[in-house]
C-alpha cells in the first residue's frame, strides 16, 4: 500500500521551514534541519512532502546500502570490491525513526532468522543503512532516549556506521540528512543534539485567518481526492524539483570571497557562538542559498538570509531574554551590517 503524500509545493505558508528543507536537499552536508514548534503546524507533512519532491538517485543494484556506483570513497565493502557496478534509479530514501525503536534496529544486528534456521551469522542492516544517501526523520526528537541520540550523533558525524556486536564486525556508509521535529514545551533538547543540526526553524501556526482557511481548504481537497490534487500540483512540483537539481549542480561552483568570510566570522564573534561549527554551517548555507538564487558568488544578502537559520539554535541560552534565537541573531546582524557600512 503506497500512501500518496501531500505535495510539498502545495503547503501553505511555512516559508522558512520549506526553505530550510530545500537547502538541506541542495547541500546534503549542511547538517540537516531541526523544526521546533507548535502542534498541528504541518512539520511532518513538509518532511514527507520533501521526499516525494527530490530527484531520483543512481544506486548500485543488490546493495543493501544503496551505494553510489561512482563515488568510491563511500561505498560498502561489497561494492568497493566489485569491479563493475550495475546501478539503477531509486527514489531518495526517507526513513522514519519511529518511537520505541530499539538500538538493534537502528544500527543493524544479527539476523535472528538466519541464526535460528541455518545457524548462520549474518548481518541484518538497520535503519541507518536504509537511510544512507537519504534522509533520516525523527519526529518528537526531544523524546528520543539518550543512548539512541548518542548513537545517532556519532554516526551522523562520521558518515560511517561501525558495528561491533553479537560477534559481528563490519562498517558501512551511513550518510544521511538528519531531520528532527518536536515541541519544546514537551521537553528540552540536549544542547549537544541541538548544535548538531545545521539549520533550525521555529515553526508557528499561521495567525492570519485567510491563510488558515487556505490550509484547511487545500487539505480538504487533498483528503477528498489525493491523486487529482497531486496531479494539479505536478507543474509546481516539477518546477521545484528542477530548481533543486540546478542548484545542486551549481553549489560546488559558488565562490565565497575573503570579505564575505570575514563578515561571517564577525557575525559569529558578535553572537558569541561556541565552536566553529556555526561558522562552517553559515558558510555552507550561504553557498547553498546563493546556488538556490542562481548566483555564483555569495553576497551579504545571502548571508543575512541564512544567519538566523544557521545560528539561531547555537546561541547560549539567555533565560532573561525572551525572544527566540533567530530574532536575536537578526538583531545582532543588523548591528554588524550597520557598523560595516559606516566603516
Amino acid at each position: 500500500m503506497t500512501q500518496v503524500t501531500y505535495p510539498f509545493a502545495a503547503i501553505v505558508g511555512q516559508t522558512e521551514l520549506k526553505h530550510a528543507l530545500v537547502l538541506s536537499a541542495v547541500d546534503a552536508s549542511l547538517g540537516g534541519v531541526l523544526a521546533l514548534g507548535d502542534r498541528g503546524t504541518g512539520k511532518t507533512t513538509a518532511v514527507r512532502g520533501l521526499a516525494a519532491l527530490l530527484p531520483k538517485i543512481e544506486a548500485a543494484r543488490d546493495c543493501r546500502y544503496q551505494c553510489s556506483g561512482t563515488d568510491e570513497g563511500v561505498q560498502c565493502r561489497e561494492c568497493a570490491e566489485k569491479t563493475e557496478i550495475k546501478s539503477h534509479k531509486i527514489a531518495v530514501p526517507v526513513v522514519d525513526l519511529p518511537l520505541g525503536v530499539t538500538e538493534d534496529r537502528v544500527l543493524g544486528a544479527l539476523d535472528i532468522e538466519q541464526a535460528l534456521v541455518n545457524g548462520e551469522k549474518r548481518f541484518e542492516p538497520g535503519l541507518l543503512a536504509d537511510a544512507n544517501r537519504g534522509f533520516l526523520y525523527i519526529d518528537e526528537v526531544n523524546l528520543l532516549e539518550d543512548h539512541l541520540v548518542d548513537v545517532l550523533l556519532d554516526v551522523a558525524a562520521s558518515g560511517w556506521n561501525v558495528v561491533e556486536r553479537e560477534g559481528l564486525s563490519l562498517r558501512h556508509p551511513a550518510r544521511f540528512v538528519l531531520i528532527g521535529s518536536g515541541n519544546p514545551e514537551e521537553g528540552d533538547l540536549r544542547p549537544q543534539l541541538l548544535d548538531r543540526f545545521g539549520l533550525s526553524v521555529d515553526v508557528t501556526t499561521p495567525g492570519d485567518i485567510s491563510e488558515r482557511v487556505e490550509v484547511i481548504k487545500r487539505r480538504d481537497a487533498f483528503d477528498k481526492d489525493p491523486v487529482n490534487f497531486t496531479q494539479d500540483w505536478k507543474r509546481e512540483t516539477t518546477k521545484l524539483r528542477n530548481r533543486i537539481s540546478r542548484s545542486r549542480d551549481l553549489v560546488s561552483k559558488v565562490d565565497v570571497d575573503d570579505q564575505m568570510l570575514a563578515l561571517i566570522a564577525e557575525i559569529c564573534i558578535a553572537l558569541g557562538t561556541d565552536g566553529l561549527r556555526g561558522e562552517l554551517t553559515l558558510i555552507k548555507a550561504s553557498r547553498a542559498e546563493a546556488a538556490w538564487s542562481g548566483d555564483i558568488k555569495v553576497t551579504e544578502k545571502h548571508i543575512s538570509n541564512m544567519a538566523p537559520l544557521a545560528l539561531g539554535h547555537r546561541l547560549r541560552r539567555n533565560p532573561l531574554d525572551d525572544s527566540r534565537g533567530s530574532v536575536r541573531v537578526e538583531r545582532i546582524l543588523d548591528q554588524v551590517l550597520a557598523d560595516r557600512n559606516v566603516a
Partner: peptide, 8 residues
C-alpha cells in the same frame, strides 16, 4: 511502525 528486536 515497529522497529525492534530485530524485526521491522
Amino acid at each position: 511502525h515497529v522497529e525492534r528486536d530485530g524485526m521491522s
